[in-house]
Amino acid sequence: MSRHRNKARMETLPTQFLENQTAWEILTSEKYFKWLLLIPLLTILAVFAFYPLFYCLYMSFNEALLVKPPEYIGLTNYRKILHDPNFWTILGRSSSAVIVCVGVEITLGLGIAVFLNREFRGQNIVRGLCLLPLVVSPLAMSLMWKYFLEPQFGIINAMISGVGLPQISFLSTDGLAFATIMSMEIWKWLPFSIFVFLAAIRGMPRDVFEAASVDGAKSWYTFRRLTLPMLRPFIMIVLLLRVMWLIRLSDPLFGTTQGGAGTEVLDWYVYRIAFVRFDLGEGATLAIITLVMTLIIGAILFRQLIKALGTSR
């Protein structure tokens, strides 16, 4: 869509710029100016994105152990990882985290955003306080969660037994432990979707909704037919960013289970291979494999986002 819009604009460009140009004019003509603006970004990308990428690509075909020079071994690393059932278990776990967290964050985020979308006393304070989890250091929080969830002296279990229920050991049972880890992640990132959606809803044209309510439309109907379609691009933005970040999920593990009780996720696994075992070859291979998968998912979502941005205009 944007391609032909560009063309349309080209025609409207004043033609006097094309003759008798000074150096400055050449630089600020669209053809050069757009690239001029990108020079800093491209420089950084060249160093920080291409360098590790090619380094890893190279290392993934080698047995690279840091203590001795790398030795070419072809596709052995790839074969080993793709045949390792452990890798697939961990990949499955990471994928389920992505799906569950994104699902919950978007649904709950939408609900809470609609819930908070009204005028009330102290509205700014309430909304501001809801933002808190987002600004807390994830590492600090994971350390503190362990303390709060401790069966013997943690506050959460103190509250649970205060109501007369049996203690729960949140972080030591398979399944429950991972659910707890996901809850921590959702707790932290739910404000992000709430705020994107809330801002979006508040930015929507009022008259459409007023017309609908005059017509006697039910609030559920308004939500489905008006709010939701208009929110589509925002849902896509949250989806894209969160999917990409959730594949990199590992912060909540640091202070809590360290990958125990069936909570090991992809990034923790990569961290162990690359940084505890210092197996650069396998680490790089894992990085390339996850990168390719993320790229595929990311590209699909990105295309959807561009489409959503286009249609809602």
Binding site: E150, P151, Q152, F153, Q167, S169, L171, S172, T173, A177, T256, T257, G260, A261
Partner: peptide, 20 residues
């Protein structure tokens, strides 16, 4: 005690101190 599967010395100390 329940919770042992996410425990290190810290947990055992707490359980012991609590008489569990």
């Amino acid at each position: 005690p329940p919770g042992s599967l996410n425990a290190f010395w810290d947990f055992v100390m707490a359980q012991f101190s609590a008489g569990n």
